[in-house]
Amino acid sequence: MSTEVRDRQVQRLGVFDRDDDLRDAEHEQVVFCRDRRTGLRAIIALHDTTLGPGLGGTRFFPYRHESDAITDVLRLSEGMTRKAAVAGMPLGGAKAVIIGDPATDRSEELLEAYGRFVESLGGRYYTAADVGTTTDDLDVIGRTSRYVVGRSVGAGGSGDSGYSTALGVFSAMQAAATATWAESGIAGRRVGVEGVGKVGRHLVDMLLDAGARVVVCDPRPDALDSIGARSAAVERVSSVLVEDLDVYAPCALGASLTPQTVATLSARVVCGAANNQLLHRDVAELLRRRSIQWVPDYVANAGGLIQVGSELTGATRDEVESKVRHVADTTREILHLAGDQDVTTWEAARRIVAGRLEAARA
């Protein structure tokens, strides 16, 4: 018997009976969806709907094990509760995952089947795009469900939310950089962007416009090509984590901040679009001990949620952009609270979220 198999027998990685940091997350509802005809296997997790219906993207990913998909959807949905609360949105936290490789398993029939499952929840869950899904996919899902946001403008949605997400990250980064280096902010600083997909490429443009020196990495050549005409001003490396940086911007998959990477990280500010950047919560304390200003991921990357969530509130484009830029104010509030109360930024943000949820329950 392999070590991996033995480890999985020891670990409890279901929904209710777990032995990791999700054991106290108290999700309201987890729905397993299966359609034999199309091969669809999906999981929808509703974490907390105190503030409103759950909203969160659908991640299409080739998970190695079903338990990995469960863990991911539970973590992501819990993060969406925090993200909506800290952004002041009247929404709850939810997320969904489709188990499979979007390059080979995606089909219109599968997406339509998934839409029927979303519809069956009667509006408790609104879906949007995430890793592995696109605006075009949402248009297809929208054929069989009314509860879809982020569809193309032609289909009645607000379109891709990558720019709004990047704007929120940039606004948070500027606030953290100003808190660290005073008025000079991000100008002249060396920023390492890890992942230049539909969010990272917009962030690179914003950083260059602000006078930053940008270095990027991404294993996908097509993503690097997306930088376009401005690529000559961007340095490409195999890994930004080993570079001499002022700012580290994780914009790919999560868990890049581990005890090992934090121990050698040169950056004084960490702010990016990736979800679940910490391998575990104790890493936040390691960052604090090294005087690294970490902007919690669900604070920095709230711009996309603000955009698609605003489809439900009827906000104008200008109102959406103004609210996204307000992420800078939230960042300053969290950094101030963390310093004033001598806690990690993770804990400072948690206290703000808890206060808003308790006020809504009361």
Rank of each mutant, 00 (worst) to 15 (best):
Q29E: 15
V30G: 04
C33I: 07
C33M: 04
R34I: 11
D35F: 12
R36F: 06
R37Y: 14
T49L: 11
G57E: 10
F61V: 10
E78A: 15
A84K: 01
V86T: 13
G92C: 05
A94S: 07
A94H: 00
K95Y: 00
E112H: 01
E112N: 00
E119K: 09
G122I: 01
R124W: 02
V131M: 15
V131G: 05
T135H: 06
D139W: 00
D139T: 08
I141T: 04
V149K: 06
G150Y: 03
G156N: 07
D160A: 13
Y163L: 12
A166E: 04
A166C: 07
A166G: 04
A166S: 08
V169H: 05
F170L: 07
A172P: 05
Q174S: 14
S184Y: 01
G185L: 12
V191C: 10
E194M: 14
G195A: 04
G197P: 00
V199D: 02
V199E: 01
L203Y: 11
D209C: 07
D209L: 11
V216A: 02
C217L: 08
P219G: 06
R220T: 12
R230K: 13
S239Y: 11
Y248R: 09
A252R: 02
L253Y: 02
T261D: 01
S266I: 08
R281H: 13
R290H: 04
R290C: 00
G303D: 05
R325V: 09
V327D: 01
T330E: 01
I334L: 08
L337T: 14
L337A: 15
Q341T: 15
D342V: 06
A348M: 06
A348I: 05
V353L: 05
R356I: 02
